[in-house]
Design a protein around this nucleic acid. Structure first.
Lengths: 588, 588
DNA sequence: GTGTGGGCGATTGGCCGACAA
DNA sequence: TTGTCGGCCAATCGCCCACAC
């Protein structure tokens, strides 16, 4: 009664090549190295799950557990979303014999540069039922097999594989005036099969041996599992009956997709962690919740900072297609335990913050200390009359971008530089008691910068330490943006576009070819650009790149290997352009 | 960060009306009454899950745990598959104060006859992209709202709801020569939306208030979760490129649906059961694995039988659309513990069997004692030259019906009559030690009918008892079949049919309008009929009914309420026609 | 360089009766 | 009674260009 089932299981449990996985996950996704030490936060894990996680009498589950990463399996689920199964071994608080490995750029070090990838966010035309896929020239020339340009309309069929190893067949043709690369036949099927919509991204990855894979990054609509993708009609079909009756009833097709991480597995992990037994967690890097397995050195470094209300900070946010990161600035309004009832000892969400751009990040009330970077200089919060935040919201008046969607927010992965254990404090011994006592619910009064470290920090670092103040370069008030359009006081042209035909598909779902996403907060590229032209954000930079060999304006192919400690006080701009774990990752 | 998530969860956690649930689940599905006693079998639960279940050091998990059913929630998952969440409270082995309730025909007794339902297995034409749904007359007249037959082509729009409460809009028209009922507009969308294929069934249910629901029973392709539905193209679309190249590559769209029950929840349930704590299990009645919560009285009755090698037995199997049950006969080849290493004390799969029709049930090596019925008369195993089993397999030479698919098998629910605690032994006290000692791996020699009860049986019934030998009527050697076609030595007409057009859809997937299913074993109605004309099966009978008021040939509308002890030696034929928990369940 | 719309065939979806099982 | 087919029409898919940003 067991044969056959095994093979099925293996199909769905098959793990991906780590390089491929990282290419699809996006440049900002960093996984901790094997054997490195991390803090596991059950609280954060719970946010990662769908539904409410009830730990029961969770007094015995500590807010954080020091663990060693014993294994990582790189997986993809049924929706082609990549996730990782991280196996963790809890360490004794005084377990000093486990050497934390230094930063390792690639988990599979020998695979560096093995793959080339290109990411493109789908336009309306790309995801239209009737349309093909407009292939950026660079993608075609870098990733796709070469065409025979001697003929008038060169074309070929290419058959990339998805994360599950399934092949898809696309007709790749170079035609039109001016000439351009297109995927025609087969593309529409792919779009329907994968249920892609405008705003989703596809990643073409070429391995060293020439094999081509195609991955998917879905636009983040909601947060942390239980995602209910909007209904997507594959072929709306002529409906005589309904037009004849004017009825629009029916024709709905709900997709009751389940959450990615189940509450029970979180509880199970928490209990195992509490009892010191090895356990495994599933981590969805694109789930828009902060990672809950954080490099121990990063946590320590962050908790050494004497956070207090009034402090200025900046935080990196990735663009929706992972092509850029954007830094947002804010002020700490209060330092207090986020959930004193259930997690009185937790630094998770310790910082209550006010953003310089409250409209865009209005629902990000709390951030983790290790996700932000303290800045010593406070740029003027100048809301220019030409680009006020309020005015920007006019572009959000479309239903799909309404304020009601700007509801919940968690934070994406922190760039690796934050986790760099080469920070001055990586030598701090691991002496955190797994089950902390004392240190109940501390709350610092607002604007009490002289208050000393609160109980949390002292409990995290009970032995002698020096408060650490990172020395950052002055923030660049003018910003340092690429791709920013300046002449956009008017409605941008893409707001006026309409879908051809009468398809009932996702017509009104996403009119924005480029989205920027912060947890559940979806921002258009336009908004980002407009914001960029203000003075209240720091800068952004390329992460993945629109690599156009004939257009170097502001772009360079980023190579990995160059790393700087983001807190070393001098490498700011380098950090912004850093791309340090994917050999060549290119993007549009 | 919690708002909104709650509501999503509630949608997916909503439970169904028990009557509706039962109507969709099918007439053979019986749930134990609330407060009744059942044995919970972790081993069976594990078979219900996808993948391998590792109980770890499971020495402490008993093979069966006597429990009280404290609650049942009737649910439907994202695929519209119904399942139940059964809450169980382990009982102390000597817990005699818990009165086992007698058999209760309907869990919600007051709801009897509240609903009328009709089941139809989809034909190729029904599931064709271009086609509509041919509504059996009885369904239209019994379930659907009445049409105004005064006009020439009467039609209406009806909007049934699915298990999630979503409405679908179908045009119901009465037309053609001869006149017939059809669903046209909207049907195709429904098929695509629900990913229905030929062989799947739809169930129309009308509540007392006239509300109409539509449920789904998918054809069982594989066993116990991790089902990978065959690729279903929603709209294959014209593919100039591939026809021009003659290529059939690509155009595949795998659906990596997950297993229904996760291994972890099985382990969790087993541990809770072992420690005597209440727990909850998810049971998928259509998962083709035997139920793992079995009426205690049924287990006891079965274990009182002195099973031995050489015994003859019969077992009921349901047809794929739950419209009929079929009894297969076999001989016990050996009585031995199925998995002595992990479950040395378990009666699960105790009986090793040889089937009279080994081709059809070749992979059913073991059955549970409470799933079979001992027969005292051994009909001659006469393989007639006109309908030999080998010959029948000729019809399986199509790839979709090849022997390679006849791989694994578990067994469906036993009809309720087997569980009837009104059997002479329902008064046997519950004195089964939850953690049994002794009784390791007993194996009875083949054909040792005089051997006394083995250790398992004595451990299940440690106190005085009388071995129970059911007195059955002599098996009817000639069978008692309906719908059997005799003139099918030739290829049946449906084997010759071809799909119109060039759709790449499920063209070759299921050519059989009627399937009979045994776990993973799929049999056509033709095969069953041919088998029926042999002498080696006992009989079958209608369970759900093709209720045709103008054609009473061999059919009657079955009413619930009439119950007979299947082992009482006289009610055989009544049992076969029994339908005792759904008020009026009709089927095609 | 590439996103979008118009134009247009070829294909399919989808509704119908005819026919037969 | 109802499953399937051929016929037929209309809708739309999907490929192409031209045009803009």
């Amino acid at each position: 009664m067991e044969s056959g089932r095994e093979s099925l299981k293996k199909i769905s449990e098959k793990s991906l090549d780590p390089q491929l996985w990282h290419a699809i996950a996006g440049g900002m996704v960093q996984m901790p190295p094997i054997n490195s030490k991390v803090f596991y936060f059950p609280q954060g894990h719970a946010e990662h799950a769908k539904g409410n996680v009830d730990f029961g009498n969770s007094h015995r589950i500590p807010a954080f557990v020091l663990c060693k990463v014993s294994a990582i399996r790189y997986m993809a689920d049924a929706d082609d979303e990549v996730y990782a199964k991280i196996r963790l071994i809890p360490l004794k608080p005084d377990d000093l014999d486990v050497e934390d490995v230094g930063y390792v750029p690639n988990n599979g070090a020998e695979n560096i540069d093995k793959m080339t990838s290109f990411t493109k966010t789908l336009t309306q035309s790309d995801s239209n039922n009737g349309g093909g896929f407009s292939v950026p020239r660079y993608c075609a020339e870098t990733i796709f097999p070469p065409l025979d340009y001697s003929v008038s309309m060169p074309f070929q069929f290419m058959c990339p594989k998805d994360v599950h190893g399934e092949s898809y067949r696309f007709r790749h043709i170079y035609r039109g005036t001016p000439r351009r690369h297109l995927l025609t036949t087969g593309w529409s099927d792919f779009v329907n099969c994968k249920k892609l919509v405008a705003g989703d991204s596809v990643v073409f990855v070429k391995a060293e041996n020439g094999d081509i894979c195609v991955g998917i990054r879905r636009a983040k609509k909601t947060i942390g599992g239980a995602q209910e993708y909007p209904s997507r009609w594959n072929h709306p079909g002529g409906n005589n009956g309904s037009s004849q009756f004017g009825g629009v009833v029916g024709r709905n097709c709900k997709n009751y997709s389940r959450g990615k991480v189940r509450a029970e597995s979180v509880v199970e992990a928490g209990n195992l962690a509490a009892s010191g037994q090895p356990f495994e967690v599933e981590y969805y890097p694109r789930a828009s919740t902060p990672e809950f397995c954080v490099r121990a050195s990063a946590v320590r470094a962050a908790m050494q900072i004497r956070w207090f209300a009034g402090m200025r900070f900046k935080m990196p946010i990735e663009t929706e297609d992972s092509s850029r990161i954007s830094w947002f600035m804010g002020t700490i309004s209060s330092v207090e335990v986020a959930d004193p009832t259930n997690w009185p000892d937790s630094p998770w969400g310790l910082l209550q913050v006010d953003w310089d751009e409250p409209d865009l990040l209005q629902n990000v009330k709390r951030v983790n200390p290790w996700l932000v970077e303290h800045v010593t200089t406070i740029p003027a919060i100048h809301v220019s009359p030409f680009s006020p935040a309020r005015k920007k919201m006019r572009f959000l008046q479309k239903p799909e971008l309404s304020l009601s969607q700007l509801s919940q927010l968690s934070l994406p992965f922190i760039p690796s530089n934050f986790l760099d254990s080469s920070s001055p404090f990586h030598y701090i011994p691991d002496t955190i008691p797994a089950g902390m006592q004392g240190a109940r619910h501390f709350q610092l009064g607002q604007y009490s910068p002289d208050l000393h470290l609160n109980g949390l920090q002292s409990s995290l670092f009970p032995i002698g330490f020096q408060p650490y103040y990172p020395v950052n370069p002055p923030a660049n008030p003018g910003g340092n943006f690429m791709n920013s359009t300046e002449n956009n006081e008017n409605i941008p042209y893409w707001m006026k576009m309409e879908t051809r035909g009468q398809t009932l598909k996702v017509k009104d779902e996403t009119k924005t070819p480029q989205l920027l996403l912060f947890g559940k907060v979806i921002l258009t590229e336009e908004q980002i650009s407009k914001t960029s032209s203000g003075e209240n954000r720091v800068s952004n930079g390329n992460l993945e790149k629109t690599a156009n060999p004939s257009d170097d304006s502001g772009s360079t192919v980023l190579q990995n290997g160059s790393r700087e400690n983001s807190t070393d006080g001098s490498g700011h701009s380098k950090v912004l352009g850093e791309l340090d774990h994917v050999g060549k990752t290119l993007s549009l």
